[in-house]
Write a protein that binds this DNA or RNA. Structure first.
Lengths: 208, 208
DNA sequence: GGTAAACTTGATCGAACGACAAACAACTAC
DNA sequence: GTAGTTGTTTGTCGTTCGATCAAGTTTACC
């Protein structure tokens, strides 16, 4: 009972990728079903049949986004040998992604739906949770640095440092959106990394 | 010919403040004319008669926002005696504003319309210009520190530092939106200021 | 071939969108 | 009082929103 009935005339993965492009450019509320149908090359009915509601489609789009554009920064955190190198590489990978030619110059996770109509509260909170995962991932990487022995900082300091670099990542997205070049972002990252030695050597400064 | 005809039954300043609250909470596209009319206590026709279009109203709202919520950070930059104190106070004033009880926990300038439908491109660019003014204001304050003698950094370094602290300000807004407390923000600011001494003592690090 | 199942299309649903215009109300100038 | 001016209200304009449905099409199964 796998392939009975008329087969799809479009590839759902391709269509999802096309939907991603539209949501990425216009945000959640700025994208209409008509926009999506046009970009995906199918009628709106086919969207609902294959992907469910607009919100369902958006959640699937965000999953795809996470495994594509979200992967390089995550891999940087994972594969770099020290916590410092991991954070630095993660920032640079983020800068690479949000200045990539052919795609909007910002992180979709951050800017696709920060505010909006009351009826889309669930979508905003969905993205907020994903952003919280970003903070957690960074925090875990710092903790790994402590157990690996390449980072010495008090537990309370780890939280602050993780939050700080999450803030930088999110700020970079606004900068890129407003026209900052890859070179501009590199300079910002250099500034942000200038705090590292101070933060990891004088822990008394960062107890909040 | 000042006061001919029927006088207004509402105070435009009060109505503008009420419109600000709605735009602040729901963003530009997430706010409908109906939402505004309801919050302002007048019919939609009166909005168009007094303020023009939705976009015109939004621009007037942003002017009000700039002179109210935007003033404390700007004053901090202006009145603190040194560049370092100015930046630090500006960050803390920003944190105060975006965690103020009774108002949304983010900067409207940053999150009211970062993305959206194509027909609202002008609104997004309007906000982008205001954000660029933020960068310019910070840059000018750093330059003043150089002429005042309390800051030594190469000209290229000033741009990078200004961009860096602008990035932090904008990142703070996302953090507050996602539930960070005033204490959380303070810890982030402490981290961000930890970069200051390095940035202003070893200028070779920040040439972009 | 016949039937059931899966998919696509095109039309359309009620509601909401931004914007506007005519009718009415309230004031000043004379 | 009367005319002229301005603000408010009510209703509605044409469009678009997200979502759904019936009808038609294309396949697998028997």
């Amino acid at each position: 009972m796998a392939t009975r009935g008329r087969p799809r005339t479009f590839d759902p993965d391709t269509a999802l990728r096309q939907a991603l492009d539209v949501f990425w450019e216009r945000g959640y509320e700025g994208t209409s079903i008509n926009d999506l149908a046009e970009a995906m090359g199918i009628a709106s009915g086919s969207i609902y049949a294959c992907f469910g509601s607009k919100e369902d489609l958006f959640r699937k789009v965000m999953a795809l986004y996470g495994t594509t554009s979200g992967e390089p920064p995550r891999r940087a955190l994972r594969e770099q040998p020290t916590a410092r190198a991991a954070i630095h590489a993660m920032l640079r990978a983020t800068a690479d992604e949000i200045t990539r030619p052919g795609t909007p110059h910002y992180c979709m996770l951050i800017l696709a739906a920060p505010t909006g109509a009351v009826e889309n509260h669930a979508v905003r909170e969905f993205l907020a949770e994903l952003r919280h995962d970003m903070l957690t991932t960074i925090k875990d990487r710092l903790a790994r640095g402590v157990t690996d022995g390449d980072l010495t900082a008090p537990p309370a300091g780890l939280d602050a440092i993780a939050r700080y670099y999450t803030t930088v990542v999110q700020g970079l997205s606004i900068q890129a959106r407003d026209g900052a070049t890859r070179i501009d972002l590199e300079a910002i990252i250099t500034c942000a990394m200038a705090a590292w030695d101070t933060l990891t050597s004088t822990p008394s400064h960062i107890s909040g």
